[in-house]
Nucleic acid binder design. Structure first.
Lengths: 344, 344
DNA sequence: CACGACTGTGGTGACGTTGCCACACGGCTG
DNA sequence: CAGCCGTGTGGCAACGTCACCACAGTCGTG
C-alpha cells in the first residue's frame, strides 16, 4: 500500500521550470524576464509565454538575498487606530505603491522598546529604508549605523543626521494662541502631552511665543502637561478648570481636544460663550460637532506622502544633503472660539 | 593611486562571521542561535555572546528562501484613511505581532485589479497567509490555487472555501429598521452601496426582513443604491428627500451616514423631530454630534483581531474545517431617532 | 582578411540559512 | 566487550535568482 503523496501545496514555478519549458538556459530565462541583457526577440516571446502559462511569480526572497536589498519599506507608527496615524500611513502607502515599493507596517505603542524591535525586523528584511514617527533615538541610530536611510515624520528625535517631514508646530500653536489673544482671552489653558518630542515641545514654545509677543504674562499654572495614556486625563482637565479659571483652552493634539471637549460637555458649559476651545489636528468630528471646533489643521495624508517621497529620493541618492520638510498648518476658525467674557 | 573602497554600508554580519568569532562551524552557530539541535551549553554561550557583540541579525530573506515560507502576512484593505479599515488593520497588526508575525499592508482602492496585484506580491514573498477585505473573487482563488490560506474580513466573496470573519449584517440592519418601525416610521429610506458584497446585500436583506416581519410594505423608491466613490452621492440623497418624503433614513455604512447627516444639516432639518437617522458602524463622530446618532456598532478592532487569530490557526492546521465567525453588532440608540411625526 | 564590436547564449558560483548526514565520543546494557 | 543510544560537532548541499564570464557567431571597418 503506497502512501498518497498529497501534494497540498504545489511548489512554486521557478526560473528553471520556465527555461526547461522554453528550451533555453536559466540565464536566458532570467534575462528575458528581468529585461536586463541580450535576448533574441523570438526567444523572449517564447519565455514570456512559458512564464505566463505556468504562472511564474519571481521569488522575492531569492531576489532580496541576491541583491542584498528588498522593495519593502518599513513603517512604524504609534497607534494605527488613531485616525491621524491612519491617514499618515495611507499617504505613505499610496506613494510607495506608485513607486513600486511595498509597506511593512508596525505599531509601537509609543514605546521605545517596541520601536527597536520593529527596526530589528526591518534590518533582518534588508529594508531599503524606514519611515517612522519616532519614539526614541535608539532605533534611528541603529539603522543609521547600518547605512539604512530613515525619514522621521511628525516629530524629530534622531541624534544622527536624517531626513524629516514635520509640520511647523511652533507656528501652528502661535497662530492658535494669537487667535485667542486677539479675542481678548488672557487666561488661556494649555493641554499638552508631557514628552520631549519636538511636536509637543514646539507647541509649548508657540504658546509661550504668542504670549511674549503680545506682552501677556503666562500663568504657568494654566499649563497642564499630561502623560501618555493617562487614564486620569479628563479629571486633571476638570481640575484645571476649577483651579485655573481659564477663559479659553488650547488642546495641543486631537486626543486632548476630544477629552477637553468631553469635560466641557459634561459640565454643561457652552462654547464659545462660557469658554473657548482650540484643538490641534483637524479630525472629522471637529467639523461635525456644534459648534464646530476651531483647530490647527495638519495635512495628514500629505505628511505621509512627502515622507515616502523623501525616502524614495534618499534611496536613490544616499549622498543627498539632509532634508527637512516643514509643512505649514492652517488655523481653521469655527464656532468654538469667541470673545472672552468681560472680567467680572 | 588606489581607489578608496568607500565602504558606505558595512555589509551585515552573517552566521559565518559568528562562527569564526567563536571558533566553531556554521552549523553549530546556526543550531545555537535558532535553538534547534544539540549544542553544548558553554559553546552556546560563546556563540550568543559573539552574535551579540557583532550585532548579528539573521537574514530574513535567506531564511524564507530556505524554509519556503516567511513570517510576513499579507493584508489588503480598501482604504486605510477610513477609520473603519484603520481600526481593522490595527486589530490585525496587534494580534499578528503577538504571535511573532509581521504585517504587510496594502490598499486597493476597492478595485479588483489592485487587489490582484497586491496578492501577486504576496505570492512572490512566500507569505504564509493573507487577510483581505475582498473586492473580487479572483485574488482569493489565485491564493487558494497556490495553497495559501486566506481569511476574508467584513465581507465574503470567495468562490472557493476559505475562512471568514464578518458581522451579522442582516441582523444589524434588521434591528436598526425594527427600531425605526417601532417608533412608528413607515417611510424609511435606505442608503446602501451598490455592490454585490455580502455586507451590503446583507444590510439590504435585513431592511426587507424587518419590513416583512412587521407587515409593512417596502416602497422601493425609498431604496437608494449608491455606487462607490459617487461624487454625486449627497445630491442624490437630497433628491431622495424631495421625491420620497421619508420620515427616517437608514444609512448602511459610516460614509453614507455622514453624507446623509450633512444633507440634513444643510437643509436645516432637526433630528429627530423633522426626520430620524440611523447609521451603521460606530465611528467617533456619531457620539459627539448633537444629538448623537443612533447606529449599529461593529466591533471593528475585534474584527481584525479575530481575522488574524483565525489565520494563525489555519496556518498551524491547514486541514481544519472552514470557519465562519459571525460577530454580533449592537444597536446603540442615541438622540437621532424619535417617533415618526403624525401623518399630515 | 584580420580584428574588434555587437549580439546572443549557457555555465557557474555566489548570496545566508538550514537540515541532513557522517562522524566521534562517552556511558550504558545485554 | 560489542553494540547502541544520546550528545555534540562539522561538512555539504540546497533553496531561486542574478551577474559575471566564456564562448560563438555575424557584422563592419581599417
Amino acid at each position: 500500500m503506497t502512501i498518497e503523496p498529497r501534494r497540498r501545496t504545489p511548489q512554486p514555478v521557478t526560473l528553471a521550470d520556465i527555461a526547461r519549458e522554453a528550451g533555453t538556459s536559466q540565464s536566458t530565462a532570467s534575462r528575458a524576464l528581468s529585461g536586463r541583457g541580450y535576448v533574441a526577440a523570438d526567444v523572449r516571446e517564447r519565455l514570456l509565454a512559458a512564464a505566463d502559462r505556468l504562472g511564474y511569480v519571481p521569488d522575492a526572497s531569492a531576489q532580496t538575498l541576491k541583491q542584498k536589498t528588498s522593495r519593502v519599506v518599513g513603517v512604524v507608527v504609534s497607534d494605527l487606530d488613531n485616525p491621524f496615524y491612519g491617514g499618515l500611513a495611507a499617504g505613505v502607502e499610496q506613494t510607495l505603491r506608485e513607486a513600486d515599493y511595498r509597506m511593512m507596517l508596525v505599531g509601537d505603542n509609543s514605546e521605545s522598546a517596541e520601536e527597536t524591535t520593529a527596526v530589528r525586523t526591518f534590518l533582518a528584511m534588508r529594508t531599503p529604508g524606514v519611515i517612522l514617527t519616532p519614539v526614541g533615538s535608539d532605533a534611528t541610530s541603529l539603522l543609521h549605523r547600518r547605512g539604512i536611510p530613515v525619514v522621521e515624520v511628525d516629530r524629530q528625535i534622531a541624534t544622527v543626521p536624517c531626513d524629516a517631514v514635520v509640520i511647523d508646530n511652533v507656528r501652528g500653536a502661535r497662530v492658535a494662541v494669537e487667535h485667542l489673544l486677539a479675542l481678548g482671552h488672557r487666561r488661556i489653558a494649555l493641554l499638552v502631552v508631557d514628552t520631549d518630542w519636538t511636536s509637543d515641545v514646539g507647541r509649548l514654545a508657540g504658546y509661550h511665543d504668542a504670549h511674549a509677543v503680545a506682552g501677556v504674562p503666562v500663568d504657568e499654572s494654566l499649563v497642564l502637561r499630561i502623560p501618555f495614556h493617562d487614564a486620569a486625563a479628563e479629571s486633571r482637565i476638570a481640575d484645571l478648570l476649577d483651579r485655573g479659571r481659564p477663559t479659553a483652552i488650547f488642546a495641543a493634539n486631537n486626543l486632548l481636544a476630544e477629552q477637553a471637549w468631553r469635560v466641557l460637555r459634561a459640565r454643561g458649559l457652552t462654547l464659545p460663550t462660557d469658554i473657548s476651545l482650540v484643538g490641534f489636528d483637524d479630525v472629522q468630528w471637529t467639523e461635525m460637532v456644534s459648534p464646530g471646533i476651531t483647530t490647527v489643521a495638519q495635512p495628514t495624508i500629505e505628511l505621509g506622502r512627502r515622507a515616502a517621497a523623501l525616502l524614495i529620493r534618499r534611496i536613490g541618492d544616499p549622498a543627498a544633503p539632509t532634508a527637512l520638510e516643514l509643512l505649514q498648518p492652517d488655523l481653521v476658525v469655527r464656532g468654538s472660539t469667541g470673545p472672552a467674557p468681560a472680567a467680572s
